[in-house]
Amino acid sequence: MKELFPMKQVNGFIFSLLLTVIALSVYFLDMSFSVAMTILLVTAFIQAGVQLILFMHAGESEDKSSIYTTTFYAISIALFTVFGSLLAMIWGYMF
């Protein structure tokens, strides 16, 4: 039975629950918008990293550089799209 629950996975799971709890603090505690956003950003990206590396085994095969490059491209383009659009449609939009 024990070999079915490797430490790596169990710890990863507990850690992700912990991150969720930390993220929840923005709901239950009173804090400023920027602090709350920082907490959310940090927990969400760590959470994503945990899934990617621990659970999805992104770095285990001969193709790890391709996989990491793909993810890097996707994330940078995604971020540029999100913030560029916010700039274009909200912060820098005059109407």
Partner: peptide, 20 residues
């Protein structure tokens, strides 16, 4: 990579401020 960073030049005249 950079081809994803220029799209707004297609609507310079449609309401963005000078900084953007």
């Amino acid at each position: 990579l950079f081809s994803f960073t220029v799209w707004l030049h297609h609507f310079f005249t449609m309401g963005q401020n000078a900084f953007t």
